[in-house]
């Protein structure tokens, strides 16, 4: 058990958990939309690190990691980039039309932690 504790898999998995927390916080509370988009990327990075921890733990059969979650991360990174590009384009359009880069009268939306 101690060996797993010291391994990079657990360490980066925990780092991923912390990054999820930080990214979520930016996404929920930051007034600027551009920063929220960066927050989404932090959140995504954290999630991918959890996948990475899973992959590293699954080393075997001569591979240093389970290739399936690694491939999922690659797919995920590309999807995350597409999302960033679409969000940035929408934000720039909103700015061109209104001159602001926040969603005015933004109602608070704390995601509730479900059971």
């Amino acid at each position: 058990m101690t060996a797993a504790w010291l391994g990079p898999a657990t360490l980066f998995g925990l780092c991923g958990a912390a990054l999820v927390g930080i990214g979520l916080f930016v996404v929920i509370t930051h007034p600027g939309l551009l920063r929220r988009i960066v927050g989404f990327n932090l959140l995504g990075a954290g999630i991918f690190l959890v996948f990475g921890a899973v992959a590293r733990r699954g080393a075997g059969a001569g591979f240093e990691g389970d290739p399936v979650p690694q491939a999922m991360v690659i797919t995920g990174i590309v999807v995350a980039f597409s999302a960033t590009a679409l969000a940035v384009a929408l934000l720039q359009r909103l700015f061109d039309l209104t001159g602001r880069e926040t969603l005015e009268a933004q109602p608070e939306h704390l995601p509730r932690s479900e059971p």
């Binding site: 990691g65 991360v73 690659i74 980039f81």
Partner: peptide
């Protein structure tokens, strides 16, 4: 460090 070189390249390039 997680031995995922494919992901490392993708992350550095895209991320």
């Amino acid at each position: 460090r997680l031995a995922s070189l494919d992901v490392a390249l993708t992350e550095a390039a895209i991320g």
